[in-house]
């Protein structure tokens, strides 16, 4: 049994405005270190909320979140930020890169913000692995979408995080570019031993994972190990039809 890197225990979260509607309704789920897990569900099922709560980007109304064994649900800023930047990497649909910094500076930014000496040789290695060697001095604005997402991935990996949270990382990319990014996420798990937790609505993307968790109406409704595209699609249809 591999240790869990992220443990979500009985987490509830609702947003003001939509009174009574709970985005998360007593969700408990654990994510094992060094594994690739996809979170799926129809729109409004709470999958992004789960990711935000698990990553410490959002605070649950109740319940606990343990990140690498440390309870983060009770932490306040800026402590939360320091925990996050030490243990977590992010890859989002909208890349979230700093446009005024070069690719290289973007990759090193989290470590500099953390006040640690950036591990340049490791960063160069990561850049090589994501295929961006030679683009270090470009600005994100000069890159294609797929290249930007690779920068985001390199940035996430450069800090040697225990877990990478990815929210629809292929959402803005075409099919083949998306596949390249997924392959890189897969490699992060297999090659670097990083856990990846990825929210997606695309069965083809989810099929790259080791395990798929299905959410509907703020609850976990199904799980799938060793998914294939067909199995995920079938399960999604079932979940959506509920």
């Amino acid at each position: 049994m591999t240790p869990t890197v992220v443990e979500v225990l009985d987490v509830t979260k609702s947003y003001p405005g939509s009174a009574g509607v709970r985005a998360l309704d007593g969700v408990s789920v654990g994510f094992a270190a060094g594994t690739f897990c996809a979170v799926m569900g129809p729109s409004g099922s709470g999958k992004s909320t789960l990711l935000h709560c698990a990553a410490g980007l959002d605070r649950p109304d109740s319940g606990r979140v343990l990140l690498a064994g440390q309870e983060i649900s009770g932490l306040r800023e800026p402590k939360l930020t320091t925990v996050r930047r030490r243990r977590v990497g992010f890859v989002f649909q909208s890349y979230n890169l700093m446009d005024s910094l070069s690719v290289w500076h973007n990759v090193l930014l989290p470590q500099r913000l953390a006040g640690v000496r950036p591990d340049r040789s490791w960063a160069r290695e990561v850049m090589r692995r994501v295929g961006l060697t030679g683009r270090e001095n470009d600005r994100p604005g000069q890159l294609s979408g797929g290249q930007r997402q690779r920068v985001a991935l390199a940035r996430a990996l450069a800090g040697r995080p225990e877990v990478i949270f990815a929210d629809e990382p292929t959402g803005a990319l075409d099919l083949s570019t998306g596949r390249e990014v997924l392959a890189l996420l897969r490699e992060a798990v297999d090659g670097f031993g990083t856990a990846v937790i990825m929210v997606t609505h695309d069965p083809a993307a989810a099929a790259w994972a080791d395990r798929v968790v299905f959410l509907a109406d703020g609850r976990i409704v199904a799980e799938l190990a060793d998914p294939t595209v067909e199995k995920v699609a079938a399960q999604m249809t079932a979940v959506s039809a509920r």
Binding site: L57, E77, P78, T81, T82, R84, R85, F90, F92, N96, L97, M98, N106, L109, P110, L113, A114, R155, G159
Partner: peptide, 8 residues
């Protein structure tokens, strides 16, 4: 974005 990159 900066906050997301780890800035407090």
């Amino acid at each position: 974005d900066l906050r997301l990159a780890g800035a407090t």
